[in-house]
Design a protein around this nucleic acid. Sequence first.
DNA 1: CGAGGTGTTGAGATTTGTCAACCTACGTGG
DNA 2: CCACGTAGGTTGACAAATCTCAACACCTCG
Lengths: 251, 251
Amino acid sequence: MEPASPPPPPPEPATASALRVACTNCSLRELCLPMGVSTADMARIDELVAQRRTLRRGDLLFRIGDPFEAVYAVRTGFFKTRISSPDGRDQVTGFQMAGELLGLDGISTEQHTCDAVALEDSQVCVIPYGQLETLTREVGDLQRQFHRILSREIVRDQGVMLLLGSMRAEERVAAFLLNLTRRLEERGFSATSLVLRMTREEIGTYLGLKLETVSRCFSRFHDEGILQVRQRQIRIVDPEALRRLVGAACV
Amino acid sequence: MEPASPPPPPPEPATASALRVACTNCSLRELCLPMGVSTADMARIDELVAQRRTLRRGDLLFRIGDPFEAVYAVRTGFFKTRISSPDGRDQVTGFQMAGELLGLDGISTEQHTCDAVALEDSQVCVIPYGQLETLTREVGDLQRQFHRILSREIVRDQGVMLLLGSMRAEERVAAFLLNLTRRLEERGFSATSLVLRMTREEIGTYLGLKLETVSRCFSRFHDEGILQVRQRQIRIVDPEALRRLVGAACV
DNA sequence: CGAGGTGTTGAGATTTGTCAACCTACGTGG
DNA sequence: CCACGTAGGTTGACAAATCTCAACACCTCG
């Protein structure tokens, strides 16, 4: 049920799902859409997020071509987004965890341009887009945060381009692990110990590599004492080595 | 002076720069930020775009780390954006032509995260971001279009990820050419004849290939009768062949 | 006319992909 | 509770794509 990783403090007790649907009570408040919104305006955002949706592992939250009606905030669980070329190859465009938004791609054409797949049992807040547009006009803090989120997604994508366009296999895998652990750490999880929610193939499709290459990188890192790898259980023994590999920053 | 391509009708006569700075008079109106804004509201947008900036070939419009103050609409000319990893490799993240916005990356951290370089003498409209935020709250059509532009950039970036992550060299070059000609055609230029504004190396850095590989792809396409290539002059003889190569769509 | 930036081409090195075998973990049903 | 089937993961040998390095051609501009 937790996004990843075994030992660390869960961001919110399991009982929370019994509480009223409201950003006000949500521990992800300061990571998610309401970040920076004053408590005075928070009640208005609570109205926005009137509905939740629960997905089982493997379920699609939306798929390519679906009419765009809402964006979604991940509450619990883990997702991947993917696009596919007509001849069947696909590209994983991202992995999303608690507090991150899904569906922003749909604004431009009013249709979703990617599939969003739950990689474990997950729950999302449904944010109807029409209402979001209205409310961003009235609540400046919300507008600012929404634009920041859109822009951050653009910046993130450009980082992925750098990764895909200029890094070799080991660097890509190192960057992937550092990115994942940084985001887990922001959510209160361990920065050194994690459980991957995706297969080697999904990692490969994200990093522009074949699954065997991903596997070999993990094995090599293991042999070099950088990681302990046991299936999807990863412990990062030497994070500095990973950072050296990607040449610092850009993670 | 024109964005690319030799024979076709320029989107606006050269004398236009003598006119008052105003979207109302701008031939790019229906490609750019004001798209979809009613004539009643257009005057308010004219106030927004109070300033233009002229750049010579090679000039930087902004660079990584610059404080973010405005977004820019390309009026004439041609740009590339690039990010760089600490060890000096860089990645061209896009090429921008008339009617496209630059600087959206800066919203998230209030600093620019990429360099924007003019690839030929160019002119941009300066859109101060604070004023844009204010006006999008008041003009719904503008808000909608701005969000669409942000989202479109996300979708575009995901297309580049697909290209970088799953296509081979020839497919990438074919997709690049189709994308470029489609956008030129939208601006009234020829769909089959163009002048590249960037070097083979810049194309390569965009496509995640070395310049020699790009050059070899052009040569192969030439030998196969798909293109006529003479330095930066390109004529597309068999666009269908290019489309077959990238497997239709996703351009 | 020459210099420097840009583009082309070839030969060989390197990285990654492909294919195949095999191993491991996990869930299901007997 | 165990056996088995299946999906996922690892490893090796080889093939293919791309990169690297080097030589040279071309073009533009001073």
